[in-house]
Amino acid sequence: MIGFVFLAVIALAAIGIYAAMFKRNLIKIVVGINIIASAANLFLVSLGYREGGIAPIFTGAESLNMVLATPQALTLTSIVINLAVTALMLSFAIMIYRHYGSLDALKRRLKE
């Protein structure tokens, strides 16, 4: 069933939001954001699907019925951006561990 992909997207996004909202370990929050990013990428790629289409490569193509290529470009951009953001967040988590001694989100000093 075609619509199954979108159910998977919603499930992944829900898992990611749950991890970001309820987990106390900073690394788990970063993993949660990564899961939301995977959901967004899956959503983008699945938007371009056409029934019976093949990969959108022109050289040596058997037929001209291809899936859309634009969402694949958008997904690549999104993957690279999320890579940069995840790397930056993880480096911040390392430095927080070095200065505070723990990775707990409840042990914060900036409040009110």
């Binding site: 939001i17 939301i36 983008l44 938007l47 958008l74 999320n82 200065h99 000093r109």
Partner: peptide, 29 residues
Amino acid sequence: GEGFEAGFKYLVLLAIGALFLLFGVGIFY
């Protein structure tokens, strides 16, 4: 140390916000 805490919170919130924006853009597309 506290600068990293502020930067982490900022980046987490903005990353989630931008991903929701991407969902909206995907729906329009």
